[in-house]
Computed example of a mutant assay.
Amino acid sequence: MPQQPQPEREFAMRFTSTPRGARLARRLVAHRLDEWGHPYTAPSNEALALITAELTANAVLHGHIPGRDFHLRLTLAEDALRIEVTDTCAEKHLPATFSAPDSMSESGRGLLLVAALADDWGVTPRRAAPGKTVWAELRVWAEGRPQTHLTGLD
C-alpha cells in the first residue's frame, strides 16, 4: 500500500456504534470541513458528508459488535480529503463487483454512492486488532471544489 502524505489537518474521534453516533459523525465532519475552508454548501463538503453518512451507517449496521465503538478519521493532505471509518468486525461485507439493487429494495445502494462520489475508496484490515477500515478520498482544488464529475452537487 502506498505511503499516505502527511496530513495538513486532521480530525479523529471515537463514536458509539449507534444511529445517533453515525449522525453525530456526519455532522462533525461537515462542521470540520467548513472550518477548514470547505463551506457546508460546497460540493466537497456535501460529497464527503454523504460518504461519511454511508460509511458510518455501514459501520453501525454491518460492523457493529456490542460494546464496541467505531472510529472516524478525517484528513486533509495536499489536494485530497480522506475519510476513514474503522469498526471492530473483521468480516468484509464488501462485494467484489457492484450491481444495481432491485428497484423495490430499500437497501444496497450505499457503496454504489460512495464509489460514485469518491475518487478512490477501499477497505483495509485493522492493524492492531480485529476489524477493518473503510476509507474514501476526494480530490479537491484549493477553493474546495472537487476535481471530479460532481456537477450534480453544484
Rank of each mutant, 00 (worst) to 15 (best):
Q3R: 15
Q3I: 15
Q4R: 13
P5L: 07
P5T: 04
Q6E: 15
Q6C: 15
Q6F: 14
P7G: 01
E8W: 07
E8L: 11
E8Y: 06
R9K: 14
R9E: 10
R9M: 12
R9N: 12
E10Y: 11
A12N: 14
A12F: 12
R14Q: 15
R14Y: 09
F15T: 04
S17K: 09
S17Q: 08
T18L: 04
T18S: 08
T18Y: 03
P19D: 11
R20F: 11
G21Q: 02
A22S: 15
A22Y: 12
R23P: 01
L24R: 14
L24E: 13
L24Q: 13
A25E: 13
R26T: 13
R26P: 07
R27G: 12
L28I: 10
V29Q: 06
V29R: 03
V29G: 04
A30F: 02
A30E: 08
H31P: 04
R32T: 10
R32P: 00
L33F: 06
D34N: 10
D34E: 10
D34F: 08
E35R: 13
H38V: 12
Y40N: 10
Y40I: 12
T41Q: 10
T41I: 05
P43A: 13
P43C: 07
S44E: 02
S44K: 06
S44I: 02
N45M: 07
E46H: 04
A47G: 04
A47I: 01
A49S: 12
A49I: 06
A49C: 06
I51P: 01
I51N: 03
I51Q: 03
A53D: 09
A53P: 00
E54P: 03
E54Q: 04
L55M: 06
T56F: 03
A57P: 00
N58R: 02
N58P: 00
A59R: 02
A59V: 02
A59P: 00
V60Y: 01
V60Q: 02
V60S: 01
